[in-house]
Structure formats: structure tokens, C-alpha cells
Design a protein around this nucleic acid. Structure first.
Lengths: 201, 201
DNA sequence: GGGAATATTCCC
DNA sequence: GGGAATATTCCC
């Protein structure tokens, strides 16, 4: 099953199938050559498909068509959708047109599930994040130790500003309390980073 | 092609193939029943394989064996590897043994290995995390410089603004405000981690 | 022996 | 119509 260019096997087989006159009873170009028709779905699946593919299921054939971006052409009569059981099925693709086999190479198979909004994280980026978190942690420890220092000064120098008034003490306690809370948050953060990091090992 | 349990089609077909007496000329259990042999690779591929699979290639059969963790049994004679053109090929798997079809369900197909250094993450999430970390870092630096300022003020001016209620309040409010902002940023960051973590479940 | 693309199946 | 698992092909 050779292909002239790098067109996937499915597409060149499909092209042959639609072109071939001896299969026109089951699959052929539509009137204007802008789409193709499957005329007898049952017999097409059981008699024609296995001669070109490794199966005889219409569903698998349609799955491939969808993988390559073909769309079923919906027929509407008087505003209601046709639902004939054995009616012809029509498929269309902007690059699958009669007499223009040169367009085939523009048809691209859809790639597996990697969603467009998902990207792979580079180790470099992850290192940056972790490094950033570590720096925050170190800074925070410095602040804590400075606070601690201020606290001890109060003990040594009873007349210093820190203990001169009730208000000062309240103020200081408020700051210490908030810093403690921040520290807790930070621990959670660092922990989360550790978890994250371990997942990337 | 029904399967009794949830054993993949390939494994149940392989089991049948090895068990069936009418294919023993081409594929059968080894003497001790711990492995199986393919006796005439050429004819086996062209005559037997297409009756069970959608191809007639030994390479595709072996690819599947490898996907399920089977290993070729190497035959050594007098220290040199046998390289007979038409000699029997032997394959083995710890859970593929004569008379023990109950072990089959332990054989697992290999999944496409996502490289350890690469993981999927939404670019949007990554941006949020980095942005949040940077903001936390900047806010922290502000706090740190504020503390530094306080420390130097205290030494130079014992009776300074710290002892004066109005200005103390203003100062305190500023600090409290900054602390609150940092906590908020941190919450966002922790939330981002939760989102990220949930993607790894 | 296995990575990766395409093909087929199964299922929502 | 398409996600995802398995199967087949192609290639290193």
C-alpha cells in the first residue's frame, strides 16, 4: 500500500475508494465533487471496508474520518433532519475534493489528548519556583529572628520604648501574632512545594 | 471474541493459541510449561497469526509480547549465542504458565511512559503560581525594611513616635494592612497549589 | 526492546 | 463526535 507523498494510509485509501469506479455503487463523489457519499452503509461496511482496512465496521471508518477532521453533512428537508435508516451518508472536508488530490497533504490527523491549554513544565521552571519559595522562607526566618531580637531588647532595657506603655505592648503583640500566622501559612506553602517537588522527581 | 474476565484480547488469544492442539505444530508450551515456543516463524506468521489477529507479521506479534512484558528466552550453547535462522523462538512471562490461566489477570500492558522530568501543568496555573510567589516575596521585603526601620529608630530616638499614641496607631495600621495583604496573596498561592495537586490525583 | 504515530475498538 | 485503551505499524 504505497503512498506517493507522505499522506497517511487512511487518506490515500479513502481517496482510492471514492475514485474507483468499481466501488461507486457504495462510495463515490457527490454531484459537485465537494464531498463523498456512502450509499449502502450495511453492504459497504461488510463488503468493501475489509478490502481496504483491517475491519468491517462503519463506526471505525467514521472514527477515522473524524480523526482527520471530516464532518458529516447534515441533510435538512423542510426544517426537519432526515433520519432515513438506509439513506446515503455524506462526509466533507475542505481539503478532500474531486480532482484535487494535491490538497490531501493539508489534511492533518488530530493528535492525542494533550489539551492545548496544557503544557509540559520544564525542570528549569520548576527549579525557579522552588528556589523562589526557599528564598521567601529564608527571608521570613530573618524577619522572625529580628523580631525575636527586638523582644529580648525589651527585657534588657525596661525603659525602652517597647515597654513604656501598654499601647506599645499591645502593638508589639499584634505584630508578633500576625507574623506567627504568616509563618504558619508559609509552612503550609513550603510543604506544598515539597509535595509538588516530590511529584516531579 | 469474548473473554471470561477482564483479560485483554491479546492475552486470551495468545493463551488459546498456545493451548490449542491444532496449532501445536507452530506454537506450543515448552517442555516444563514455563514458557512457549514458536516453531516455524515463517509459516506461523503467514498462516496462523491472521486467524487470530489483524496482521500476519511476526514483528507485530513480538511487539505485543513486549508490550505485555514477555521476554525472549536466550539460548546459549558452549558460550555462544545460537543464531539459527529457522530455530524455535521462546518467550516467557512470570504469569504465563501452563495450567495456570488464573495468573493471566496479573499481566499488565505497559502504558505510554511519561518522562519523569516532564509533567503536564496548565500554563495558566504556572503563571499564577509564579506571579503569586513574586508578590509574596516583594511584600515580605517591604515588611522587612519596615522592621529594619523600626529597629534603627528605636536606638536613635528613645522617645520617638513609638511612644506617641496617634502615630503608633498609624504605624500599626500600616503594618497590619501589609500583613493582611501578604496573607491574602498566600491564600491565593495555596489555592493554586490545591488546584495543581488535584490535577495529579 | 521499546518510542511514537497511526489504526481499531470501546464507550460516553 | 471524541476520549481513551488496546492493536498494528514504522523506525531507532
Amino acid at each position: 500500500m504505497k503512498q506517493s507523498s507522505n499522506v497517511p494510509a487512511f487518506l490515500s485509501k479513502l481517496w482510492t475508494l471514492v475514485e474507483e469506479t468499481h466501488t461507486n455503487e457504495f462510495i463515490t463523489w457527490s454531484q459537485n465533487g465537494q464531498s463523498f457519499l456512502v450509499l449502502d452503509e450495511q453492504r459497504f461496511a461488510k463488503e468493501i471496508l475489509p478490502k481496504y482496512f483491517k475491519h468491517n465496521n462503519m463506526a471505525s471508518f467514521v472514527r477515522q474520518l473524524n480523526m482527520y477532521g471530516f464532518r458529516k453533512v447534515v441533510h435538512i428537508d423542510s426544517g426537519i433532519v432526515k433520519q432515513e435508516r438506509d439513506g446515503p451518508v455524506e462526509f466533507q472536508h475542505p481539503y478532500f475534493k474531486q480532482g484535487q488530490d494535491d490538497l490531501l497533504e493539508n489534511i492533518k490527523r488530530k493528535v492525542s489528548s494533550s489539551k492545548p491549554e496544557e503544557n509540559k513544565i520544564r525542570q528549569e521552571d520548576l527549579t525557579k519556583i522552588i528556589s523562589s519559595a526557599q528564598k521567601v522562607q529564608i527571608k521570613q526566618e530573618t524577619i522572625e529572628s529580628r523580631l525575636s531580637e527586638l523582644k529580648s531588647m525589651r527585657g534588657k532595657r525596661p525603659n525602652s520604648l517597647w515597654c513604656q506603655s501598654t499601647q506599645s505592648r499591645i502593638l508589639k503583640e499584634g505584630i508578633v501574632k500576625r507574623c506567627r500566622k504568616i509563618k504558619t501559612k508559609k509552612r503550609v506553602l513550603i510543604l506544598a512545594f515539597d509535595v509538588l517537588e516530590s511529584r516531579f522527581q
